[in-house]
Design a protein around this nucleic acid. Sequence first.
DNA 1: ACCTGAACACCGTTCAAGT
DNA 2: ACCTGAACACCGTTCAAGT
Lengths: 206, 206
Amino acid sequence: MESTRRLTPRRDPQQQRSKDRIQLILEVTARLMDEVGFDDLTTILIAKEAGMSVGTLYHYFPNKHSILRAIARNWLDHWDQVILEINALPIETMEMEEVVNILIDTFARVYQKQKGILHLVRAMFAIPELKDLDERHDEFIIANMANILPQIGINKSLTDRKYIARTYLEMTHALLLVACQQRGTRARQTLEDTRELVYCLFLRHL
Amino acid sequence: MESTRRLTPRRDPQQQRSKDRIQLILEVTARLMDEVGFDDLTTILIAKEAGMSVGTLYHYFPNKHSILRAIARNWLDHWDQVILEINALPIETMEMEEVVNILIDTFARVYQKQKGILHLVRAMFAIPELKDLDERHDEFIIANMANILPQIGINKSLTDRKYIARTYLEMTHALLLVACQQRGTRARQTLEDTRELVYCLFLRHL
DNA sequence: ACCTGAACACCGTTCAAGT
DNA sequence: ACCTGAACACCGTTCAAGT
């Protein structure tokens, strides 16, 4: 252990009451992140809004970043689960176009589902302590995509497929965030473009 | 004025000595940003490394963010200038492929030129006070791209062209940052992919 | 056993005093 | 006129004392 700071909750909650409080802290933090912004989000404010003292807050989370980390984890875990489900589909039997549709639709839903996604992504990018979470998740998505690619006809080396998967991931990430900030027709149009560009990327590496 | 915080240097430097010191602060900050990271970058450290007291630092910059803002401004200004130069080319006479090549090559050079580009982009994303800089710049690039598009055969409404330009900007931004983190063949491959995807995006909206 | 909040450490910023 | 750095405000974090 030594000087490495803990980023996980101090201890696993045993009682329902504790679990509720942790959940409450996460919800309050996610809400405040949207309301007061990232900079004015203080631990004392979070504690006050959650109806407890700072001390109690620190009883459940070892530091401020670990709260954001827990929110990020929930989101990334959901995403990981979704890619596993896609990977379990009978992809070899499908058209590439259909697979791309499923990928984009599912990913888009993952982004739209998370409240305050823009702030969360910003936090993951800005806070060094959250970088490892983001990186591990990226690698997980990339590994799964590298597994999907040969099933749609991209029979390259694993290294090459991982490389393609990274390009896929970064591109969709950027464009899905744009779509999250748009409404109605425009948002749908961006999804269409994303779909088409992914299709284009895959065709190029066939 | 009232309670709005100043983000520009306190006063325009009149003497060469002052200009040198401002330049020194910017260089030291850019270097430290890479060396100690974003979080451990304190004003006292910057002042010490620049061989002056905090007070003197604050004589030239009203606050910490304004230093990062000045670095960001320099980069964005360079970029703005580059897009103006491209816009001044006889684009109507060129093939779309050639135009895309020039765009990607030039943009890639803008990204590679900036020392610590990843930290800078992170700062622009994370610090709300720098958001307006980024937004104004985005709009400038988008306006110029919207002007270039009809010259390569994309004759849509201004709104539609701006929309295409945003997709172009976000996509290239994401992928050029990826390329900055890669080396040699891989980096070149990412540039190739970016080129191809932009080409694909433009063809789609022809 | 769990909670509180004053106290501590640290960093951004200021300003009275020095040259 | 310019510079210094102790002092102040504020926020993350801790821990002795309370229930």
